[in-house]
Amino acid sequence: MNPSTGVGRAPTVGRGPAPFDVRGFARTAQGSLRDEFDLEAIARAGLAPECRRTLAALAELEGATMAYLRNVLVTATHKDARVTAFLVSWAYEKYWIADALRRIAGEAEDPEDRAAGIATSGRGPVRRALAGFVQGFDVIGAHLALGYVDDLVLDLAYARLAAAAIPIATDPGAAGPALGDLIARIRAIKSRHTAFFEGETCRRLGASPRAARLARREIRRSPWPLGGAAVGAAERAAFVRFATSDGAAVAALARGIRSLPGLDDRTATAVVRRLGA
């Protein structure tokens, strides 16, 4: 066993990279981006309406960590100290990503709609706790797979925002370059989350067919993006339209999902369909 990471088992599938260093991640977690970027200047420089709307939606989606924690921690996932240690710093980094996005985009359009969305989103925690009781430890792999897929989905939007920031750069005084830098920074921060989710999911789904089955089911029936209940229906639809306008990107999303052990074509197709892409 490696005492610094707490990883006791070698991955049974693939020859992946070294196990993710959770303690190192916690030590170097990225806090507020307010000092590093002039967020007010980016906001002042003006944004294309659809970019602004997407940034506002992303702020809500990134900030919806507590709903995810609620759903996963009522199950056996809370017993895995390595996973919970990761989630503590993951939520912290996403809080500050959401803060930066909100500062440049302003508040989301429809806060009332949003509150209603949370109240009715998915199964309640009691049902999840009962279901989690039956599913045992295999459910952890499914929860981490959800985190991985959600990162892929949100990255579609970030990729398009990054591309959109380039042409604006030719317009002097526009938000382009600074916005592009911020998006690049956010994607770099998020790449560590994706790496953790991916590594853990591969290990767990590769080792347990039951974990893979649970993951397929959870992925198929989850709303995408995961925190979609945190934004109103109209905002969610606009977000999806923006994020999935590029067919090649959507195909890459499907490939990313299929690349995990045990996740089949049907699962990838279900996500694309649920996105409405």
Binding site: G63, A67, R70, H78, V126
Partner: peptide
């Protein structure tokens, strides 16, 4: 502690942005 959050979140308290922050 993070596991205790789960208990707090099973109530409507998670709706509030201040609490979540």
């Amino acid at each position: 502690t993070v596991c205790y959050t789960r208990d707090l979140l099973t109530t409507p308290s998670h709706r509030e942005a201040d609490v979540s922050a």
